[in-house]
Each structure stands twice: as structure tokens, then as C-alpha cells.
């Protein structure tokens, strides 16, 4: 993990900027979504942060299998926990948004199903970790499951939108697209927000990792 405090402060400032400017900026008025489009600055970065975290955990799982250092396994596990946290936040912001634009908390949408399956897979991962006591065995088995599940998940999320002929999410199906031709002023808020949340995700991961290491040192 990178030393220093500058990137943590940068992440905080970027998010703070996206909160203040994202609420105050003039957004294009689209039918149905209207002002709720501002949720884009908060909802989508959650998924970005989640995927970056799950990717990090995949990298560390592969690293563990080749190095067999328990520290790599610890980071992989904590990255999954952090990713799950962001995934739940993404689900919550998405559900609130859906209630006000599509009229329901949960709709049968390929993106929603994909999100639900990914959260389920990683909850299964934590249950798997909980069911094994021996450290080395737990690390190895969960690393294998992590790689296996992540690969299938990537395929799943890749083919899923193409299978469904309609999606409520923009850019797919026949409704007003916002992601493809995102308004330039919105881009000025969205990208900093995404980068900021990713940095914060790494900070949370760093804190969790250090806490876990301290706990492990205390035990024996």
C-alpha cells in the first residue's frame, strides 16, 4: 500500500467537491429522472469502487496461491469485505433512485440481477471463510473459490445485458441515454467523484488490513 497521506486527502477533497458542486451544478433536464440525475454522482462510483475492490482481492488471491504468504490472503479477505460494503451502498442508492424514477424498489432488470448475484457470490465467499478454522487451508480454499467465482461473474456480467432485449438502465434498450453522451458539465463532477470514492475504498481497505494485522498479533 502506498505510504503518505496525500492520496487520502485527495480522495476526501474530490468527494467533497463532488457533493457540493454535484448538488449545485446545472444539470440537463431529462424526462422521468429530472433532478434525480444527480444521484449518478453517488450511485455509479459505488459500483466502480466495489469492482476495483473485488479486482484487488482477485489479484491478492492469485498472489497468495503463488506465494503462500498469509498476509496476501488477509488483504484479499478484507478487500472482499470492503467491496461488499460498497456493493450494499450501491444497492441502497440504486433502490432509492429506482423508487423515485421507476416507481419500485426492485425491478426485474439485468443490471440489478447481476448486482444481486455478485453480492450473493461474495457473501458465499465470507461464509466459506467462516466455515474453515485452519488458517492455511482457509486461505487456499477461499482463494480458489474467489478466482473461480470472479471469472464466472465477469462472464455473467458481460453476457447478461446482451441477453436481455430491454433494460431500464441508460445506454441499453430504448430509453434516454445518459452514460454514453454524458453532459460535459456532469462529466466534470462524475469522474472526480469516481476517482475519489476509489481512493477512499483503498483507504478503508488499508485501515481494515492494519486493524486485522494488529488483532492477529495480539492473539497468539
Amino acid at each position: 500500500m502506498i505510504k503518505g497521506i496525500w492520496w487520502k486527502v485527495a480522495g476526501l477533497l474530490l468527494i467533497l467537491y463532488s457533493i457540493i458542486y454535484g448538488i449545485l451544478v446545472e444539470v440537463p433536464v431529462l424526462p422521468v429522472i429530472h433532478q434525480t440525475i444527480r444521484n449518478l454522482f453517488f450511485h455509479v462510483p459505488m459500483w466502480f469502487a466495489m469492482f476495483i475492490m473485488l479486482g484487488t482481492s482477485l489479484v491478492y488471491s492469485i498472489k497468495y496461491l503463488s506465494s503462500l504468504k498469509l498476509k496476501d490472503d488477509l488483504i484479499a479477505a478484507q478487500a472482499v469485505n470492503t467491496g461488499l460494503f460498497f456493493g450494499l451502498l450501491g444497492l441502497m442508492t440504486g433502490m432509492i433512485w429506482a423508487k423515485f424514477t421507476w416507481g419500485d424498489f426492485w425491478t426485474n432488470d439485468p443490471q440489478l440481477n447481476g448486482a444481486a448475484v455478485s453480492v450473493m457470490a461474495y457473501l458465499a465467499y465470507s461464509i466459506l471463510r467462516g466455515s474453515i478454522d485452519e488458517k492455511a487451508l482457509r486461505a487456499r480454499v477461499s482463494a480458489v473459490y474467489n478466482i473461480f467465482a470472479f471469472m464466472l461473474l465477469v462472464i455473467f456480467l458481460g453476457i447478461l445485458p446482451r441477453l436481455a432485449d430491454s433494460s431500464l438502465h441508460p445506454g441499453k434498450g430504448g430509453n434516454s441515454s445518459t452514460m454514453g453522451d454524458l453532459d460535459p458539465t456532469m462529466r466534470m463532477v462524475f469522474y472526480p467523484a469516481a476517482i475519489g470514492w476509489i481512493l477512499i475504498a483503498f483507504w478503508i481497505l488499508d485501515i481494515r488490513k492494519r486493524k486485522r494485522i494488529l488483532e492477529l498479533q495480539q492473539q497468539p
Binding site: K8, L16, I19, I20, L24, I200, W203, D206, I207
Partner: peptide
């Protein structure tokens, strides 16, 4: 009203940021 929302969200977020920072220092 937009201003109020922005302000409240900024304050909540700053609180979380301070919490995160304190946690980091304690660790």
C-alpha cells in the same frame, strides 16, 4: 434548498472523513 442539501451532505461527509482520519491515526 439545493444549498441546504449540499451543506448538510457536506457536513455529514466531513464527519465521516474526520472519523476515518482519527481511526487511521489511532491505528
Amino acid at each position: 434548498k439545493f444549498l441546504v442539501v449540499a451543506l448538510v451532505m457536506a457536513i455529514i461527509f466531513s464527519g465521516l472523513a474526520v472519523y476515518l482520519y482519527l481511526l487511521d491515526r489511532k491505528l
